[in-house]
Design a protein around this nucleic acid. Sequence first.
DNA 1: AAGTATTTTCGGTCATACCAAACGGTCGTG
DNA 2: CACGACCGTTTGGTATGACCGAAAATACTT
Lengths: 257, 257
Amino acid sequence: MNRTADDDGVRVGATATAFEIVQALKELDGAGVSAVARHIDTPKTTVFDHLKTLEELGYVTTAGDEYRIGAGFLELGGYARNQMTVFEVGKPQVDTLAGKTDQHANLMIEEHGVGVFLYTAAGENTVRLDTYAGRQVHLQTTALGKSILAYTPRDWVEAILNRHGMPAITDRTITDREELFEELASIRERGYATDKEERVNGMWCIGAPITNSDNEAVGAVSVSAPKNQVQGERFRETLPNQVQGTANVIEVNLTYS
Amino acid sequence: MNRTADDDGVRVGATATAFEIVQALKELDGAGVSAVARHIDTPKTTVFDHLKTLEELGYVTTAGDEYRIGAGFLELGGYARNQMTVFEVGKPQVDTLAGKTDQHANLMIEEHGVGVFLYTAAGENTVRLDTYAGRQVHLQTTALGKSILAYTPRDWVEAILNRHGMPAITDRTITDREELFEELASIRERGYATDKEERVNGMWCIGAPITNSDNEAVGAVSVSAPKNQVQGERFRETLPNQVQGTANVIEVNLTYS
DNA sequence: AAGTATTTTCGGTCATACCAAACGGTCGTG
DNA sequence: CACGACCGTTTGGTATGACCGAAAATACTT
């Protein structure tokens, strides 16, 4: 039911503007009425009406003199995440993976054609990153996402690329479609994916897919680390084994739940 | 600017219905158009229009034949949480608290008069709970929330109680206003709060406030455990010390950031 | 093949989302 | 201290589109 490009689309325009305003709040890291209005090129009064409504409903808060995204979204998002079995099963495994490697370990799913970080665990002495739970990224820019794409039907992948494009995030990001498909093929051979500074400069990643009985990806796990800490043998042998091991454990546990 | 009861309120009705529908999806754990329409007593066609827009915008997904809350909310909520310094500073401390006690450790803030679980960490061998990150609860039903209320101006507390009421969640929940204020006073004397099955049967909690330089709560931390595991001295001495210690560390770290 | 449930399309209509103009407050600045 | 510049907010009119009834597709049982 889900394979063709989406239908016509937005039918309630007011909801669209409401979320446009929320997005603006995010991009501006909090802002006042006028700043938002300027940012999305919309009359002040319209923005005002929406912000007041969203505040009343509990999805926007006022901190001092500016509006910010409120806890209402966290409630809904946290609930949604909690409902997912991949999360329930995967979280503890990702935790132990982070512990064993003393690096960042992550869990990702695909939704609406983009990669969604479901959970991120940090080791003891790890660098600070911009990857919070919920963060959305282009699939082809991470080892996680490429793992997922490698185990997704080709026409589906094509549709995703058409919809979201292949922008360069760093100068190492894959931007050529054929290059991507070749890489996906070799991921299928090896069973795991790598990412050398394709989304974050200085960071290398190893990801492995979590597949179901139809051999399609339902998610992926990864370890990411500053490149100097994972040179040589560790990047080629140890880490891939640990990441794939974690993915397999999750797969097994998924079949019994 | 924030102390009186809120202003008039909702100005964009369409947004209100949109979120009403999302709430219905949550309460029904996913549902189809008709089920939602029935649940909130609204024409099917209206619900249909809204669900399609929300899906198009990425805030609702279709899993099989039913709509579910999508990752868009997690993105916004995760972002909002990530922006909060209490979270940034508190998370690692809550993690170590959970490790030391081998029990659930939690971080809560107040927003719009309700308690919001910002983060929850579990020990190795802990029971499964219904407290996910983002979950909202009545403040007076948890040790966390009572810690916060104890360090909140009285008229503010009154306003919160007026707005959200004091429903009984278990048969131990405080439902009497005077009883609550007496307890808040003794919390201020002791410096920490307790909760004996006031929100979840069988669970006991110890919470301590995180205060700012004005001695007002900006949040709270807690440990919660099955009551049989924390009887006697541990509940009266060891745990309170550990929880208060964690709260203090967070307070100190907050002043330098 | 008919019956009951669904999701979805189609159009009309009246409420309302949107917006221009104006008001009151606060903040710098000359 | 007046001035302009900017802010959030109130007000009221209007054209738009949110809302919804009726009915057509579609799916499942029986």
